[in-house]
């Protein structure tokens, strides 16, 4: 039978021979299970207001991009300024295939993964030939070129208005139910990304990636196959970010390059990574939620919120150099966790 023992600082649950211990002392409340349960409960609590649900889904979309992005920054040792290129790639691939060939979301997902794999592999060569500022500049230009293409070939991409009429992700009859299930799907994707990246960071591959992030040349001297790690990291994270684009296209049933490809979308993504905590993926999740809700809050100030929002976030970067996660995390270096280093070379 299940037995409960209530100690002063812990609850012990016994079942047969197995024992589950839960420490109540607040500084040990780092239970990922607890965080996941809270996240799973949020959509149920707010399911009466579709506006809030959409907001939560948008936050999850930010997380779906910010988590692979922080992995990419650490695994390649370079800051990618064009993650939205793959958002656009995934979104347009899914949208155009869905409209013109009538493919279902699952079919488009496969093709999106394939397309992002090919583009990711080709663009991963950039990590070998360029580093530091030059890599950032090259990647910054890529989505802008894509944006130009959506205007030049306007009859296909409809650069200004965006493509519409994409097959919805799910259709369950009730609109409210659709919103709720989509919200859970977005949360599931974000949490899966977090689980994968967390497992990788805590493994021996994570340590090698951290070595690449710290000092690439020394890592090479110690026998790390740097090029292989950079190519694999860039390609896999590109696929992850492309899937976020696929989700956007099918969730909103429209996709426009003007929304997702310009620099102001990039700034929100990078701020989600930095404000969450440099390189910490839990922080990236927290940062994504933080950015979404702050953006919504400052809208009460009227049109001036376009100024207030970035100013507030820039201020936060100075106040919290370790990010939101830095408030929570104590310096316990034995549990190694890589953090982003910015290199100029």
């Amino acid at each position: 039978m299940v037995k409960f023992e209530f100690g002063r600082s812990r609850i012990v649950i016994r079942y047969g021979n197995s024992k589950f211990e839960w420490t109540i002392e607040p500084r040990y409340w780092r239970n990922p299970l607890l965080a996941v349960l809270i996240l799973l409960a949020i959509p149920m609590l707010i399911h009466q207001q579709p506006g809030m649900l959409t907001l939560f889904t948008i936050a999850n979309i930010y997380a779906m991009i910010a988590i692979p992005l922080s992995w990419q920054i650490i695994g390649t040792g370079r800051i990618n300024f064009g993650p939205q290129f793959f958002v656009g790639l995934g979104g347009y691939t899914a949208g155009l295939l869905s409209i013109h060939y009538g493919l279902t979301p699952l079919q488009t997902l496969l093709i999106v993964i394939l397309v992002c794999l090919v583009f990711g592999l080709v663009l991963s060569l950039l990590t070998l030939i360029a580093g530091g500022l030059y890599f950032s500049l090259i990647t910054l230009i890529l989505p802008l070129i894509f944006l130009e293409i959506t205007f030049i070939y306007g009859d296909i991409f409809r650069g200004e208005s965006g493509i519409g009429g994409i097959a919805p992700l799910i259709s369950l009859g009730s609109i409210k139910l659709n919103y709720l299930v989509c919200c859970y799907i977005s949360l599931a994707i974000a949490l899966t990304y977090m689980l994968i990246v967390d497992k990788i960071f805590r493994s021996r591959w994570g340590l090698k990636m951290a070595a690449i992030n710290d000092n690439e040349d020394v890592a090479r001297m110690l026998g790390v196959d740097v090029n292989k790690y950079k190519i694999v990291t860039f390609t896999v994270t590109s696929i992850f970010i492309g899937i976020a684009g696929w989700f956007i296209a099918h969730y909103f049933t429209t996709f426009s390059g003007v929304t997702y490809l310009p620099i102001n979308y990039l700034i929100k993504l990078l701020l989600a990574v930095i404000i969450g905590g440099r390189g910490s993926i839990y922080g990236a999740l927290a940062g994504a939620y933080f950015i979404t809700f702050v953006e919504e809050m400052v809208k009460v100030f009227g049109p001036i919120h376009y100024v207030i929002f970035p100013t507030l976030l820039l201020g936060l970067i100075f106040i919290l150099p370790e990010g939101l996660w830095g408030i929570y995390r104590k310096h316990k270096y034995r549990e190694y966790y890589p953090s982003i280093r910015i290199r100029r070379r």
Binding site: R204, K208, A210, D214, V218, A219, L222, S339
Partner: peptide
């Protein structure tokens, strides 16, 4: 030229993990 953001033991663990005879070594063993 150490890896400045890592602890001393992890600095050494990086090179342990890259040996030819540690292909399947776990992080703990390293």
């Amino acid at each position: 030229q150490p890896f400045p953001d890592m602890t001393a033991i992890l600095n050494v663990a990086v090179s342990v993990l890259n040996r030819t005879d540690s292909a399947n070594m776990s992080l703990g063993d390293a």
